[in-house]
């Protein structure tokens, strides 16, 4: 692996006295698409928030380019790491373009003017998410899928090289799921971006991601190439599900067919 830019070292995350992540070590491969998978409540969203600097660790640290992210200003961090949060605000009354323009926040000073390169970043983000025709539409009137794409566009306008996405495909119909995942793949392959996404559909994750990390109860139980992570053993341990794993004839990636739940 090339030197990771983003990594967690003996990370401990908690809500008050309730621990969520316990002594976790993780290095995010640069220029790759990493999928975080695991059952509900396993701590994957909290881990993602911590990687973005939104959740302060109880112990350990998140390191970006060799220094703890706690030592960077919020603005400087936002130029390096973009986060698509799970439950975004309705952005009431704002147009798609206005929302996407918010992604330029870390590149502008408090009283700084709107520059050509800000507009250019917004145009690129709108184009990548196929939202050009909807730029003047109100975000709160969009369908769930369109709204999700508008939020993704906002994160893209941030032009950070590391993108963290919490369930980017939830609320999307199949076509838009494929579109969003394809977009992530393109960002990684063509723009050299580093993408970490929390995903629920294991077959989809296996198909699009370069690396998968499976979590359970705040610990990593498997990580590596999709074929190493999506295995009947891992599925049984992580999800308590008995599953058949086939190979996608098209891509050679694992396909997961869940059969039944098994007691813990």
């Amino acid at each position: 692996m090339t030197d990771p830019r983003l990594a967690a070292h003996t990370l401990r995350l908690a809500y008050g006295a309730t621990p969520v992540i316990e002594g976790l070590d993780l290095a995010i491969e640069p220029g790759r698409f990493t999928a975080l998978v695991g059952p509900n409540g396993c701590g994957k969203s909290t881990l993602l928030r911590a990687l973005a600097g939104l959740h302060a660790p109880a112990a350990g640290q998140v390191v970006l380019d060799g220094a703890s992210i706690a030592r960077r200003s919020t603005r400087a961090l936002a130029r390096e790491i973009g986060l698509l949060a799970q439950s975004a605000s309705p952005a009431e009354g704002m147009t798609v373009e206005e929302l996407v323009a918010q992604g330029r926040y870390p590149h502008r000073s408090v009283l700084g003017p709107w520059r050509d390169r800000d507009q250019q970043a917004v145009e690129e983000a709108l184009a990548l998410t196929s939202l050009i025709s909807l730029r003047h539409a109100l975000v709160d009137r969009l369908s769930g899928g369109q709204r999700q794409r508008a939020w993704i566009a906002m994160v893209l306008a941030q032009q950070s090289t590391i993108l963290l996405l919490d369930e980017p495909t939830t609320y999307l119909d199949l076509a838009h799921q494929v579109e969003v995942l394809g977009l992530m793949e393109r960002l990684v392959k063509e723009h050299g971006a580093t993408v970490v996404a929390v995903l629920h559909d294991l077959s989809q994750a296996a198909r699009h991601a370069d690396t998968m990390v499976a979590l359970k109860a705040g610990r990593i139980i498997a990580s590596g190439r999709p074929s190493e992570v999506v295995t009947p053993e891992v599925l049984r341990t992580a999800f308590n599900v008995e599953a058949t794993v086939l190979t996608d004839p098209d891509t050679g990636t694992p396909l997961c067919l869940p059969r039944r739940t098994v007691p813990e």
Binding site: R49, T74, A88, Q102
Partner: peptide, 10 residues
């Protein structure tokens, strides 16, 4: 946009 989004964009 909410505290989380505000922080995540800097």
């Amino acid at each position: 946009l909410g505290g989380d989004v505000a922080r995540s964009i800097g």
